[in-house]
């Protein structure tokens, strides 16, 4: 029988953290190899698992951006929520919009200088085009109990109300079965960091260029660090994150002006000796950063700049974020599974 290769993070517990639904990652090349289309693949997965599940389809030849504007290789191109084999006809699926390259968009979204310099010619996907949605809901798909939100980077069971954060870099490692991922609680630092977004048309979270680098989408002062604090997450090895952040810095992106002012970006920039536009960070963003110990004095403290290999080796120590985490092989967290095809 023909089968589709996928990666599955099964509902249950990993490192004592609760995975609230089945999570499936699929490489579009595997869909093509199985000789089927996306629709058949999604329905086969949903029917085989017969559980509340989120399904993300990836294009590894494309690129995307993290919420703080770091460009990475690989992108989610379609997200689905399914429950007991059913996919809600109106709200169960969404495709991400391919962003056309132009000099105009580079002027409006300065973090995309990474696209021009490092990944020319590669397709860029972030969030969906709101015009493709039946009504202007958030970048979310829902079927029954299952919800796949923020352009496929957080999933939840709406009935049990349990949720998990899945930042894109950790998903990429799980899909490829590469290295370790951290399974832990999101914690205060990432809770603050995910609000330090960049301005993007059809972004992962916001459909318009609502918040610029240096601002905070949270705008909730000392409460920002509590928003996702106790929610489980699966994130990339910090060295993987550090590598991509250094790429952005090498490409001339200024934290606080071109890319977001998240704690991870700022801490890598500080130790890499890269310039930052601290004057462009808004007061409300400072308030949130200071609530997790990132203040101007800390960032302006003179430290000996580290080389790329040195920073990669010390990434766990230098990049704050994730609480009660355990490093586990990505190939164990997301198991290779064959979905039978009729």
């Amino acid at each position: 029988m023909n089968a589709l290769q996928v990666k599955l993070i099964a509902e249950g517990r990993i490192n004592d953290k609760f995975i609230p639904l089945d999570i499936v990652f699929v490489d579009k090349r595997d869909i093509a190899a199985a000789g089927i289309d996306d629709d058949k693949a999604i329905r086969a997965i949903a029917g085989h698992l017969n559980s509340p599940c989120g399904i993300n389809i990836f294009d590894l030849d494309a690129v995307t951006t993290t919420s703080d504007g770091i460009m990475i290789e690989g992108a989610i191109v379609e997200m689905t929520a399914a429950d007991r084999g059913k996919i809600n006809a109106d709200f169960g699926r969404l495709s991400m919009a391919r962003i056309p390259y132009s000099e105009e968009i580079l002027a409006l979204e300065p973090h995309l200088k990474q696209w021009k310099k490092r990944y020319p010619g590669r397709a860029l996907y972030r969030g969906p085009n709101p015009a493709t949605k039946i009504i202007p809901v958030h970048n979310v798909v829902i079927s029954g109990r299952a919800s796949n939100n923020n352009s496929a980077t957080e999933m939840m069971n709406i009935v049990t109300m349990e949720e998990i954060l899945l930042p894109i870099l950790g998903q990429m490692q799980c899909l490829k079965g590469e290295g370790n991922v951290l399974v832990g609680n999101t914690g205060a630092v990432i809770s603050v960091g995910i609000g330090m977004t960049v301005a993007e048309q059809f972004g992962r979270v916001f459909p318009t260029r609502q918040f610029k680098a240096g601002e905070t989408a949270h705008g909730s002062g000392e409460y920002a660090k509590t928003l996702k604090k106790n929610i489980p997450c699966i994130v990339a090895d910090k060295a993987v994150l550090a590598g991509y952040i250094m790429n952005a810095l090498d490409d001339g992106c200024l934290p606080g002006r071109d890319i977001g002012c998240s704690p991870a970006v700022l801490c890598v920039a500080k130790h890499y000796g890269a310039p930052m536009d601290l004057d462009n960070i808004a007061g409300r963003a400072w308030e949130e950063l200071e609530s997790v110990g990132i203040n101007r004095a800390f960032l302006e403290e003179r430290v000996a700049p580290l080389s790329r290999p040195e920073l990669l080796a010390r990434a766990d120590e230098l990049i704050p974020g994730v609480e009660d985490a355990r490093a586990l092989p990505a190939a164990e967290v997301a198991r290779a599974v064959e979905i039978p095809l009729a």
Partner: peptide, 13 residues
């Protein structure tokens, strides 16, 4: 505030 709700499939099992 946005509120997420399950869809009708939860009632149709």
């Amino acid at each position: 505030v946005n509120i997420l709700h399950p869809t009708e499939e939860v009632e149709l099992e």
